[in-house]
Design a binder for these strands. Structure first.
Length: 437
RNA sequence: GUGGCCGUAGAUCAAUGGUAGAUCACCUGACUGUGACUCAGGGUGUUGUGGGUUCGAGCCCCAUCGGUCACCCCA
Protein backbone atom coordinates (compact mmCIF):
# COMPACT_ATOMS: atom_id res chain seq x y z
CA UNK A 1 0.00 0.00 0.00
CA UNK A 2 1.18 3.48 -0.83
CA UNK A 3 2.32 5.37 2.21
CA UNK A 4 0.34 8.48 2.85
CA UNK A 5 2.46 11.44 3.76
CA UNK A 6 2.61 15.18 3.45
CA UNK A 7 3.79 16.70 0.19
CA UNK A 8 7.51 17.40 0.11
CA UNK A 9 8.38 20.75 1.58
CA UNK A 10 5.00 21.11 3.23
CA UNK A 11 5.10 20.46 6.94
CA UNK A 12 2.62 19.54 9.60
CA UNK A 13 2.70 21.72 12.66
CA UNK A 14 2.04 19.77 15.83
CA UNK A 15 1.77 20.74 19.47
CA UNK A 16 3.70 21.86 21.37
CA UNK A 17 5.53 23.53 18.45
CA UNK A 18 2.27 25.21 17.48
CA UNK A 19 2.30 27.07 20.81
CA UNK A 20 5.42 28.89 19.70
CA UNK A 21 3.71 29.87 16.47
CA UNK A 22 0.74 31.20 18.38
CA UNK A 23 3.09 33.25 20.50
CA UNK A 24 4.54 34.83 17.36
CA UNK A 25 1.17 35.38 15.75
CA UNK A 26 -0.39 36.89 18.85
CA UNK A 27 2.46 39.31 19.44
CA UNK A 28 2.70 40.27 15.78
CA UNK A 29 -1.01 40.98 15.48
CA UNK A 30 -1.03 43.08 18.61
CA UNK A 31 1.87 45.16 17.37
CA UNK A 32 0.52 45.57 13.85
CA UNK A 33 -2.80 46.73 15.22
CA UNK A 34 -1.00 49.15 17.52
CA UNK A 35 0.48 50.72 14.40
CA UNK A 36 -2.91 50.99 12.75
CA UNK A 37 -2.76 47.98 10.47
CA UNK A 38 -5.93 45.98 9.95
CA UNK A 39 -6.23 42.47 8.65
CA UNK A 40 -6.99 41.69 5.02
CA UNK A 41 -7.67 38.15 3.84
CA UNK A 42 -7.25 37.35 0.19
CA UNK A 43 -7.41 34.02 -1.66
CA UNK A 44 -4.52 31.59 -1.75
CA UNK A 45 -5.14 31.21 -5.45
CA UNK A 46 -4.91 34.04 -7.96
CA UNK A 47 -4.79 34.32 -11.73
CA UNK A 48 -1.27 33.49 -12.87
CA UNK A 49 -0.95 36.79 -14.71
CA UNK A 50 -1.22 38.71 -11.45
CA UNK A 51 2.08 37.32 -10.21
CA UNK A 52 3.77 37.51 -13.58
CA UNK A 53 2.94 41.20 -13.78
CA UNK A 54 3.57 42.08 -10.15
CA UNK A 55 6.72 40.13 -9.34
CA UNK A 56 8.30 40.28 -12.79
CA UNK A 57 8.55 37.64 -15.49
CA UNK A 58 12.34 37.46 -15.24
CA UNK A 59 12.42 36.65 -11.53
CA UNK A 60 13.20 33.18 -10.28
CA UNK A 61 9.87 33.03 -8.54
CA UNK A 62 7.89 33.49 -11.73
CA UNK A 63 10.30 31.64 -13.98
CA UNK A 64 10.47 28.38 -12.09
CA UNK A 65 8.99 28.42 -8.63
CA UNK A 66 5.26 28.89 -9.04
CA UNK A 67 2.63 26.28 -8.36
CA UNK A 68 0.61 26.85 -11.48
CA UNK A 69 -2.27 24.72 -12.69
CA UNK A 70 -5.11 24.89 -15.16
CA UNK A 71 -8.61 25.37 -13.84
CA UNK A 72 -11.54 23.44 -15.30
CA UNK A 73 -12.41 26.32 -17.58
CA UNK A 74 -8.89 26.41 -18.95
CA UNK A 75 -7.69 29.48 -17.11
CA UNK A 76 -4.28 29.47 -15.48
CA UNK A 77 -4.24 29.78 -11.72
CA UNK A 78 -1.34 29.97 -9.29
CA UNK A 79 -0.88 29.36 -5.58
CA UNK A 80 0.36 32.65 -4.23
CA UNK A 81 4.15 32.81 -3.85
CA UNK A 82 3.94 36.01 -1.81
CA UNK A 83 1.33 38.29 -0.33
CA UNK A 84 1.73 41.75 -1.78
CA UNK A 85 0.34 41.03 -5.25
CA UNK A 86 -2.94 39.70 -3.91
CA UNK A 87 -3.30 42.54 -1.44
CA UNK A 88 -2.76 45.14 -4.14
CA UNK A 89 -5.19 43.33 -6.44
CA UNK A 90 -7.83 43.47 -3.71
CA UNK A 91 -7.02 47.11 -3.03
CA UNK A 92 -7.71 47.95 -6.66
CA UNK A 93 -10.64 45.60 -7.15
CA UNK A 94 -12.55 47.10 -4.24
CA UNK A 95 -11.52 50.65 -5.07
CA UNK A 96 -10.26 51.14 -1.56
CA UNK A 97 -8.31 54.24 -2.59
CA UNK A 98 -11.56 56.06 -3.23
CA UNK A 99 -12.81 55.39 0.26
CA UNK A 100 -9.79 56.20 2.39
CA UNK A 101 -6.78 58.43 1.97
CA UNK A 102 -4.27 55.88 3.02
CA UNK A 103 -4.55 52.24 3.86
CA UNK A 104 -2.76 49.99 6.29
CA UNK A 105 -3.30 46.29 5.87
CA UNK A 106 -1.67 43.21 7.25
CA UNK A 107 -2.05 39.59 6.29
CA UNK A 108 -1.00 36.21 7.58
CA UNK A 109 -1.00 32.88 5.84
CA UNK A 110 0.72 30.26 3.73
CA UNK A 111 2.71 31.01 0.57
CA UNK A 112 3.89 28.50 -2.01
CA UNK A 113 7.09 28.26 -3.98
CA UNK A 114 8.30 25.15 -5.75
CA UNK A 115 11.91 25.24 -4.58
CA UNK A 116 14.20 22.56 -3.27
CA UNK A 117 13.53 22.44 0.46
CA UNK A 118 16.26 23.03 3.00
CA UNK A 119 16.58 24.37 6.51
CA UNK A 120 14.43 27.45 6.79
CA UNK A 121 13.08 27.10 3.27
CA UNK A 122 9.95 25.19 2.47
CA UNK A 123 7.52 24.87 -0.40
CA UNK A 124 4.68 25.91 1.82
CA UNK A 125 5.76 28.57 4.24
CA UNK A 126 3.95 31.15 6.31
CA UNK A 127 4.36 34.84 6.10
CA UNK A 128 2.99 37.69 8.13
CA UNK A 129 3.22 40.89 6.18
CA UNK A 130 1.88 44.40 5.97
CA UNK A 131 1.33 47.06 3.34
CA UNK A 132 1.08 50.81 3.88
CA UNK A 133 -0.66 51.98 0.73
CA UNK A 134 -0.81 55.50 -0.64
CA UNK A 135 1.76 56.71 1.85
CA UNK A 136 4.73 58.35 0.11
CA UNK A 137 6.38 59.90 3.17
CA UNK A 138 9.85 58.65 4.10
CA UNK A 139 8.78 58.63 7.74
CA UNK A 140 6.42 55.81 6.83
CA UNK A 141 9.34 53.66 5.68
CA UNK A 142 11.18 54.43 8.88
CA UNK A 143 8.15 53.82 11.06
CA UNK A 144 7.70 50.39 9.48
CA UNK A 145 11.33 49.43 10.07
CA UNK A 146 11.06 50.69 13.64
CA UNK A 147 7.98 48.55 14.13
CA UNK A 148 9.87 45.50 12.92
CA UNK A 149 12.74 46.19 15.28
CA UNK A 150 10.19 46.44 18.06
CA UNK A 151 8.57 43.20 16.98
CA UNK A 152 11.76 41.19 17.12
CA UNK A 153 12.52 42.59 20.53
CA UNK A 154 9.03 41.70 21.71
CA UNK A 155 9.56 38.17 20.48
CA UNK A 156 12.81 37.82 22.39
CA UNK A 157 15.02 37.80 19.31
CA UNK A 158 18.00 40.07 19.97
CA UNK A 159 20.44 38.63 17.53
CA UNK A 160 19.41 40.45 14.38
CA UNK A 161 20.88 42.84 11.85
CA UNK A 162 18.60 45.42 10.30
CA UNK A 163 19.91 46.22 6.84
CA UNK A 164 18.68 49.18 4.84
CA UNK A 165 19.38 50.27 1.31
CA UNK A 166 17.90 52.25 -1.54
CA UNK A 167 17.72 50.58 -4.94
CA UNK A 168 16.47 53.72 -6.66
CA UNK A 169 13.54 54.29 -8.90
CA UNK A 170 13.08 53.93 -12.63
CA UNK A 171 14.92 57.21 -13.14
CA UNK A 172 17.97 56.20 -11.07
CA UNK A 173 18.62 52.61 -11.88
CA UNK A 174 19.67 52.77 -15.56
CA UNK A 175 22.43 55.21 -14.68
CA UNK A 176 23.71 53.00 -11.93
CA UNK A 177 23.54 49.86 -14.02
CA UNK A 178 25.62 51.55 -16.68
CA UNK A 179 28.21 52.50 -14.09
CA UNK A 180 28.26 48.97 -12.66
CA UNK A 181 28.65 47.45 -16.08
CA UNK A 182 31.48 49.82 -16.93
CA UNK A 183 33.23 48.82 -13.74
CA UNK A 184 32.88 45.12 -14.45
CA UNK A 185 34.03 45.46 -18.01
CA UNK A 186 37.05 47.47 -16.99
CA UNK A 187 40.27 45.61 -16.28
CA UNK A 188 40.86 44.57 -12.73
CA UNK A 189 44.15 44.74 -10.84
CA UNK A 190 45.51 41.90 -12.98
CA UNK A 191 44.71 43.64 -16.23
CA UNK A 192 41.90 41.32 -17.32
CA UNK A 193 38.29 42.49 -17.34
CA UNK A 194 36.64 41.68 -14.03
CA UNK A 195 33.63 40.35 -15.86
CA UNK A 196 35.43 37.31 -17.21
CA UNK A 197 36.40 36.19 -13.74
CA UNK A 198 32.96 36.47 -12.23
CA UNK A 199 31.14 33.26 -11.39
CA UNK A 200 28.99 31.76 -14.08
CA UNK A 201 25.74 32.73 -12.39
CA UNK A 202 26.89 36.28 -11.89
CA UNK A 203 27.85 36.61 -15.57
CA UNK A 204 24.39 35.45 -16.45
CA UNK A 205 22.90 38.06 -14.15
CA UNK A 206 24.67 40.91 -15.86
CA UNK A 207 21.85 41.28 -18.34
CA UNK A 208 19.01 39.93 -16.28
CA UNK A 209 19.47 41.68 -12.97
CA UNK A 210 22.92 43.20 -12.51
CA UNK A 211 22.14 44.33 -8.98
CA UNK A 212 22.10 40.74 -7.83
CA UNK A 213 25.80 40.38 -8.67
CA UNK A 214 26.47 42.47 -5.60
CA UNK A 215 24.55 39.93 -3.56
CA UNK A 216 26.64 36.94 -4.62
CA UNK A 217 28.08 34.62 -1.97
CA UNK A 218 30.92 33.53 -4.23
CA UNK A 219 34.21 34.68 -2.63
CA UNK A 220 35.69 35.64 -5.99
CA UNK A 221 32.63 37.70 -6.84
CA UNK A 222 32.78 39.40 -3.48
CA UNK A 223 36.43 40.29 -3.98
CA UNK A 224 35.85 41.47 -7.55
CA UNK A 225 32.97 43.72 -6.58
CA UNK A 226 34.51 45.07 -3.40
CA UNK A 227 35.35 48.35 -5.09
CA UNK A 228 32.28 48.45 -7.31
CA UNK A 229 30.38 51.72 -7.54
CA UNK A 230 27.60 52.11 -5.02
CA UNK A 231 23.99 52.63 -5.97
CA UNK A 232 23.86 55.22 -3.22
CA UNK A 233 26.24 57.44 -5.20
CA UNK A 234 24.03 57.28 -8.25
CA UNK A 235 20.68 58.31 -6.82
CA UNK A 236 18.79 61.27 -8.23
CA UNK A 237 17.94 64.19 -5.96
CA UNK A 238 14.45 62.97 -5.10
CA UNK A 239 15.55 59.44 -4.20
CA UNK A 240 18.51 60.73 -2.25
CA UNK A 241 16.39 63.14 -0.25
CA UNK A 242 13.87 60.43 0.50
CA UNK A 243 16.48 57.94 1.60
CA UNK A 244 18.30 60.49 3.75
CA UNK A 245 15.01 61.28 5.46
CA UNK A 246 14.39 57.59 6.13
CA UNK A 247 17.80 57.22 7.75
CA UNK A 248 17.39 60.40 9.79
CA UNK A 249 14.03 59.23 11.08
CA UNK A 250 15.42 55.83 11.99
CA UNK A 251 18.08 57.54 14.05
CA UNK A 252 15.51 59.74 15.75
CA UNK A 253 13.49 56.67 16.63
CA UNK A 254 16.55 54.95 18.06
CA UNK A 255 16.55 52.06 15.63
CA UNK A 256 19.83 50.22 15.25
CA UNK A 257 20.50 49.57 11.58
CA UNK A 258 23.20 49.22 8.98
CA UNK A 259 23.17 50.77 5.54
CA UNK A 260 24.17 48.04 3.13
CA UNK A 261 24.61 49.32 -0.41
CA UNK A 262 24.76 45.73 -1.64
CA UNK A 263 21.37 44.77 -0.30
CA UNK A 264 19.14 43.75 -3.19
CA UNK A 265 15.71 42.22 -3.31
CA UNK A 266 14.60 39.41 -5.56
CA UNK A 267 11.28 40.83 -6.58
CA UNK A 268 11.15 43.34 -9.40
CA UNK A 269 8.57 45.64 -7.91
CA UNK A 270 10.79 47.21 -5.29
CA UNK A 271 11.78 50.82 -5.77
CA UNK A 272 13.62 53.12 -3.42
CA UNK A 273 13.96 51.97 0.16
CA UNK A 274 14.55 48.27 0.72
CA UNK A 275 15.32 46.53 3.97
CA UNK A 276 15.97 43.15 5.41
CA UNK A 277 16.21 41.74 8.89
CA UNK A 278 18.78 38.98 9.20
CA UNK A 279 18.99 36.60 12.10
CA UNK A 280 22.18 35.21 13.49
CA UNK A 281 20.83 32.65 15.89
CA UNK A 282 21.74 28.96 15.81
CA UNK A 283 18.22 27.94 14.81
CA UNK A 284 18.77 29.25 11.30
CA UNK A 285 20.76 27.66 8.53
CA UNK A 286 21.97 29.47 5.46
CA UNK A 287 18.52 30.97 5.07
CA UNK A 288 18.88 33.74 7.57
CA UNK A 289 16.61 36.44 6.16
CA UNK A 290 13.85 36.72 8.73
CA UNK A 291 12.08 39.57 7.08
CA UNK A 292 12.27 41.52 3.85
CA UNK A 293 10.50 44.49 2.45
CA UNK A 294 10.65 47.84 0.84
CA UNK A 295 8.97 50.48 -1.18
CA UNK A 296 7.00 49.65 -4.31
CA UNK A 297 5.86 52.99 -5.58
CA UNK A 298 5.02 51.78 -9.09
CA UNK A 299 3.34 48.44 -8.43
CA UNK A 300 -0.21 49.68 -7.95
CA UNK A 301 0.00 51.53 -11.23
CA UNK A 302 1.50 48.47 -12.93
CA UNK A 303 -1.50 46.42 -11.85
CA UNK A 304 -3.93 48.93 -13.26
CA UNK A 305 -4.33 51.62 -10.64
CA UNK A 306 -5.21 55.07 -11.85
CA UNK A 307 -2.46 57.51 -10.98
CA UNK A 308 0.35 56.97 -8.56
CA UNK A 309 -0.13 55.02 -5.36
CA UNK A 310 3.18 54.88 -3.54
CA UNK A 311 3.39 52.13 -1.00
CA UNK A 312 5.74 50.28 1.29
CA UNK A 313 5.47 46.81 2.74
CA UNK A 314 7.24 43.86 4.28
CA UNK A 315 6.77 40.22 5.08
CA UNK A 316 8.48 38.00 7.58
CA UNK A 317 8.74 34.24 7.49
CA UNK A 318 7.03 32.65 10.47
CA UNK A 319 9.11 29.45 10.32
CA UNK A 320 12.36 31.37 10.45
CA UNK A 321 11.17 33.68 13.18
CA UNK A 322 9.96 30.76 15.29
CA UNK A 323 13.31 29.06 14.74
CA UNK A 324 15.07 32.17 16.02
CA UNK A 325 13.20 32.35 19.29
CA UNK A 326 15.05 30.66 22.12
CA UNK A 327 13.17 28.41 24.50
CA UNK A 328 11.51 25.03 24.43
CA UNK A 329 8.23 24.95 22.53
CA UNK A 330 6.51 23.41 25.55
CA UNK A 331 7.30 26.49 27.61
CA UNK A 332 5.00 28.47 25.32
CA UNK A 333 2.06 26.12 25.80
CA UNK A 334 -0.88 26.90 28.02
CA UNK A 335 -1.08 24.14 30.60
CA UNK A 336 -4.38 23.45 32.31
CA UNK A 337 -4.80 25.39 35.52
CA UNK A 338 -6.75 22.56 37.07
CA UNK A 339 -6.97 18.84 36.43
CA UNK A 340 -9.89 16.97 37.94
CA UNK A 341 -9.32 13.36 38.84
CA UNK A 342 -11.85 11.05 40.39
CA UNK A 343 -12.58 7.73 41.92
CA UNK A 344 -15.92 6.28 40.96
CA UNK A 345 -18.57 7.05 38.37
CA UNK A 346 -20.57 9.53 40.43
CA UNK A 347 -17.47 11.54 41.24
CA UNK A 348 -16.40 11.59 37.64
CA UNK A 349 -19.77 12.90 36.53
CA UNK A 350 -19.60 15.56 39.21
CA UNK A 351 -16.15 16.56 37.97
CA UNK A 352 -17.37 16.92 34.44
CA UNK A 353 -20.07 19.37 35.52
CA UNK A 354 -17.62 21.32 37.68
CA UNK A 355 -15.13 21.52 34.84
CA UNK A 356 -17.77 22.79 32.48
CA UNK A 357 -18.71 25.55 34.89
CA UNK A 358 -15.12 26.64 35.45
CA UNK A 359 -14.34 26.54 31.74
CA UNK A 360 -17.33 28.79 31.20
CA UNK A 361 -15.61 31.29 33.47
CA UNK A 362 -12.48 31.12 31.37
CA UNK A 363 -10.29 28.66 33.25
CA UNK A 364 -8.36 25.93 31.52
CA UNK A 365 -9.62 22.76 33.11
CA UNK A 366 -8.93 19.14 32.27
CA UNK A 367 -11.04 16.16 33.32
CA UNK A 368 -9.69 12.64 33.37
CA UNK A 369 -12.43 10.56 31.78
CA UNK A 370 -10.85 7.23 32.58
CA UNK A 371 -11.68 5.01 35.49
CA UNK A 372 -7.96 4.47 35.91
CA UNK A 373 -6.01 4.27 39.13
CA UNK A 374 -5.48 7.45 41.09
CA UNK A 375 -1.79 7.06 40.40
CA UNK A 376 -2.16 7.05 36.65
CA UNK A 377 -4.61 9.92 36.76
CA UNK A 378 -2.17 11.94 38.87
CA UNK A 379 0.61 11.03 36.54
CA UNK A 380 -1.31 12.36 33.61
CA UNK A 381 -2.16 15.57 35.46
CA UNK A 382 1.52 16.05 36.20
CA UNK A 383 2.48 15.45 32.61
CA UNK A 384 -0.02 18.04 31.46
CA UNK A 385 1.71 20.53 33.72
CA UNK A 386 -1.40 21.39 35.70
CA UNK A 387 -1.01 23.92 38.49
CA UNK A 388 -3.70 22.26 40.61
CA UNK A 389 -5.31 18.87 40.77
CA UNK A 390 -8.76 18.43 42.23
CA UNK A 391 -9.19 14.96 43.71
CA UNK A 392 -12.72 13.70 44.12
CA UNK A 393 -13.67 10.28 45.49
CA UNK A 394 -16.67 8.87 47.30
CA UNK A 395 -15.63 10.46 50.61
CA UNK A 396 -15.28 13.94 49.22
CA UNK A 397 -18.43 13.59 47.18
CA UNK A 398 -20.42 12.78 50.34
CA UNK A 399 -18.89 15.64 52.31
CA UNK A 400 -19.41 18.08 49.44
CA UNK A 401 -15.72 18.91 49.19
CA UNK A 402 -12.74 18.08 47.05
CA UNK A 403 -9.05 17.84 47.74
CA UNK A 404 -7.27 20.66 45.98
CA UNK A 405 -3.64 19.75 45.42
CA UNK A 406 -1.04 22.35 44.54
CA UNK A 407 1.28 20.42 42.27
CA UNK A 408 4.15 22.81 42.64
CA UNK A 409 4.08 22.86 46.43
CA UNK A 410 3.07 19.24 46.76
CA UNK A 411 0.42 20.17 49.34
CA UNK A 412 -3.29 19.67 49.34
CA UNK A 413 -6.25 20.87 51.36
CA UNK A 414 -9.98 20.18 51.37
CA UNK A 415 -12.07 22.90 49.78
CA UNK A 416 -15.75 23.33 49.03
CA UNK A 417 -16.92 23.56 45.48
CA UNK A 418 -17.40 27.31 45.84
CA UNK A 419 -13.82 27.76 47.02
CA UNK A 420 -12.27 26.29 43.90
CA UNK A 421 -12.60 29.33 41.69
CA UNK A 422 -11.16 31.81 44.23
CA UNK A 423 -8.17 29.49 44.62
CA UNK A 424 -7.60 29.45 40.86
CA UNK A 425 -8.06 33.19 40.63
CA UNK A 426 -5.51 33.77 43.39
CA UNK A 427 -3.02 31.58 41.58
CA UNK A 428 -3.42 33.70 38.47
CA UNK A 429 -2.52 36.85 40.34
CA UNK A 430 0.72 35.29 41.51
CA UNK A 431 1.60 33.03 38.62
CA UNK A 432 4.36 30.48 38.99
CA UNK A 433 6.57 30.64 35.91
CA UNK A 434 4.51 30.93 32.79
CA UNK A 435 5.03 32.54 29.44
CA UNK A 436 2.16 34.87 28.81
CA UNK A 437 0.90 34.86 25.26
C1' G B 1 17.35 22.34 -11.39
C1' U B 2 22.67 20.67 -9.28
C1' G B 3 25.64 18.39 -5.42
C1' G B 4 27.04 16.18 -0.41
C1' C B 5 25.41 13.29 3.73
C1' C B 6 21.86 9.99 6.12
C1' G B 7 17.71 6.11 6.48
C1' U B 8 17.91 0.53 12.73
C1' A B 9 12.40 0.99 18.70
C1' G B 10 8.16 6.85 19.93
C1' A B 11 13.18 10.07 20.15
C1' U B 12 18.70 10.15 19.90
C1' C B 13 22.00 6.57 18.39
C1' A B 14 25.13 1.55 18.72
C1' A B 15 25.89 -3.31 16.53
C1' U B 16 34.24 -7.31 12.30
C1' G B 17 29.32 -10.39 6.99
C1' G B 18 27.41 -14.66 12.20
C1' U B 19 21.27 -14.64 18.05
C1' A B 20 19.15 -6.63 16.60
C1' G B 21 21.08 -3.43 21.42
C1' A B 22 21.87 1.20 24.78
C1' U B 23 19.95 5.76 26.79
C1' C B 24 15.68 8.71 27.22
C1' A B 25 10.55 8.29 26.64
C1' C B 26 6.51 4.88 27.50
C1' C B 27 3.79 0.87 30.44
C1' U B 28 3.29 -2.12 35.13
C1' G B 29 4.37 -2.78 40.19
C1' A B 30 6.61 -1.44 45.12
C1' C B 31 2.29 2.62 47.32
C1' U B 32 -5.27 -1.91 46.70
C1' G B 33 -6.96 7.03 46.96
C1' U B 34 -1.94 10.86 45.11
C1' G B 35 2.29 13.14 40.41
C1' A B 36 7.27 14.95 40.07
C1' C B 37 12.15 11.67 43.27
C1' U B 38 13.79 6.23 44.22
C1' C B 39 13.72 0.95 43.29
C1' A B 40 12.17 -3.69 40.51
C1' G B 41 10.33 -5.39 36.02
C1' G B 42 8.56 -4.87 30.65
C1' G B 43 11.23 -4.09 23.93
C1' U B 44 7.02 -1.62 22.01
C1' G B 45 11.36 -3.43 15.49
C1' U B 46 8.75 -5.18 8.00
C1' U B 47 16.85 -2.46 10.19
C1' G B 48 12.67 2.82 4.32
C1' U B 49 11.33 -0.44 -0.11
C1' G B 50 12.62 -3.96 -4.14
C1' G B 51 16.24 -6.93 -6.17
C1' G B 52 21.42 -9.07 -6.20
C1' U B 53 26.08 -11.38 -4.00
C1' U B 54 26.77 -15.00 0.10
C1' C B 55 26.18 -21.08 3.75
C1' G B 56 24.56 -16.51 6.17
C1' A B 57 23.21 -9.29 4.89
C1' G B 58 21.33 -3.95 9.44
C1' C B 59 26.40 -4.19 7.28
C1' C B 60 28.60 -5.51 0.55
C1' C B 61 26.40 -4.26 -4.75
C1' C B 62 22.32 -2.15 -7.88
C1' A B 63 17.83 0.33 -8.16
C1' U B 64 14.08 3.06 -5.91
C1' C B 65 11.60 6.01 -2.25
C1' G B 66 12.25 9.30 1.70
C1' G B 67 14.84 12.70 4.86
C1' U B 68 18.52 16.32 5.52
C1' C B 69 22.14 20.10 4.40
C1' A B 70 24.24 23.25 0.82
C1' C B 71 24.25 25.76 -4.10
C1' C B 72 20.70 28.69 -6.89
C1' C B 73 17.08 31.92 -4.82
C1' C B 74 14.49 33.83 -0.90
C1' A B 75 10.68 34.55 4.06
Amino acid sequence: MERLQAVKGMNDLLPPESAKWQFVETRARALLEAYGYREVRTPLVEPTTLFARAIGVATDIVEKEMYTFTDRDGSSLTLRPEGTAGAVRAYLEHQVAGREGHTRWYYSGPMYRHERAQKGRYRQFFQIGAEALNQPEPTVDAEMIAMLAQLFTALGIDDVDVLVNCVGGAEDRPKYMAALRAYLEAPGPDGAPRLSRLSETSQRRLDKNPLRILDSKDPTDIALTAEAPSILDHLGDASKAHFDAVLATLRELGVKFTVDARLVRGLDYYTGTVFEVRGRGPGLGAQNALCGGGRYDALVETLGGAGKTPAVGFAFGVERVVASIPGEPASFAQAPELCLVSHGDAARRFNLALAQELRGRGYRVDVDHRSASMKSQMKRADKLGARFVGVLGEDELQKGILMLRDMGAGEQRPVTRAEVEPALAAARISPTVKQEA
